[in-house]
Design a protein around this nucleic acid. Sequence first.
DNA 1: CGCCGTATTGAATAGGGTCAAGCGACGTGG
DNA 2: CCACGTCGCTTGACCCTATTCAATACGGCG
Lengths: 236, 236
Amino acid sequence: MTISDCNKVLLEEEKCVFCPTRDITLSACIKPGDFLRTYSSIYYKVIEKGSKLYGCDEEARHIFILHDGIVKLKKHLPTGEQRIVRLLRKGDIVGIESVTVSCYQHDAIAMTAVSVCMIPADLVFELSHKSSELNASLLNNWQRALLTSDTWLTKLSSGPSLYRVVWLLIWLSEIAPDEEFFMPGREDMGNMLALTTETVSRNIAGLRRDGDLELPGRDRARIDIASLKRIVKDPV
Amino acid sequence: MTISDCNKVLLEEEKCVFCPTRDITLSACIKPGDFLRTYSSIYYKVIEKGSKLYGCDEEARHIFILHDGIVKLKKHLPTGEQRIVRLLRKGDIVGIESVTVSCYQHDAIAMTAVSVCMIPADLVFELSHKSSELNASLLNNWQRALLTSDTWLTKLSSGPSLYRVVWLLIWLSEIAPDEEFFMPGREDMGNMLALTTETVSRNIAGLRRDGDLELPGRDRARIDIASLKRIVKDPV
DNA sequence: CGCCGTATTGAATAGGGTCAAGCGACGTGG
DNA sequence: CCACGTCGCTTGACCCTATTCAATACGGCG
């Protein structure tokens, strides 16, 4: 089902049944009985590469279920620098904090073309009281986000620059193992790893020389996972 | 109410009413009606400085509500290094992941003497289906943990070493603003900031020379917040 | 073709790591 | 009560890695 197909079914009452993310936890928890009530307030949206889903400190009214594409969550430091604190991919919830706090905590920016399902936060909040499945789903999402944060703290923010770059490549490749996957620009990678663009670039050049990394196109990469894991001494 | 008093009331049916953390969100959500059922399974525990609440990959059966003291969450890297990914303090929930996953994700170690209330995870899970307040409380806790993680990623894991040390001191002082507060050993601080003990030590020495930091005792510090915030260019 | 933004490469530098020695507090045992 | 050993903190000197600054190359697009 393509995006335009989905936009079409948006006009129907059964939109969620045919939604391409029917399999994604949260939407799956919205029961047929809820359709009529939610009909008017849930939107399917396509966001072009580079544009913002929301900004830091904006009033947090919606959560976004990510159907496709990659979204980065960015934070600004008082010193002017910025840091990317998380990447979100298919099935992740963007702006989940809107359920508990009144302002978004990051800038959320589409790194690729992105399609999302936009659900009012108070609707989620309300439904979560009634559906323990939805609740469990929210808790799980939060749990996953924390796990990711821990990984970023341990693997992507400490140790030698080569290790960090390698861990990031491994992490990115998990979206599409054994295949070509999305690789952000050097500056973004630097902002994830707390390194400069030059350092990232140099490490990438090294990996290419050693044959552990191929760049089939701008934004695209393919890696020799086993070899990379050996570099960071990750068993298996 | 002292710890021994609390241990005494543990023997009574009304224990939670007199619990020193009655004001802490989660316990407050356990209603009188639940007392009889929970009676046998909730323990009040005092843990001495340096000992473990649980280890990574252990089966996760309990959450711990932190009444007093500081707990560090540690992760080991395949390379042998370790990193402290979070500090928990009064009112925080330790091992909250036990509600959603089967194994703990960190080593949880008491940095000071610690007192906790130990609640079986399945009990929390069960109660969360019935109490939307408890649920909201869980969601809030998770939200807070993520916020903390973001702070650690942005402020404690990037930028010059002096900035990191200063941010950590500011963060630690928030427990007891304007007063003396707990400061961990240099090695632990290094593991939080992704720096070596020597670098941390040097920066601390510098701050003391400039009169921005006093160390009234081992583990204790007092800072000139305004001055430190000026260093990291944090407004106000 | 020439322009712009991004990536790469190079050379010089600075900041943090590493290694090693010295110091001070504390606890133990003589 | 003091000598001794331990452990954690500090300090110094040197080295190495990542940053900085600058030049160049690449690729898409008007």
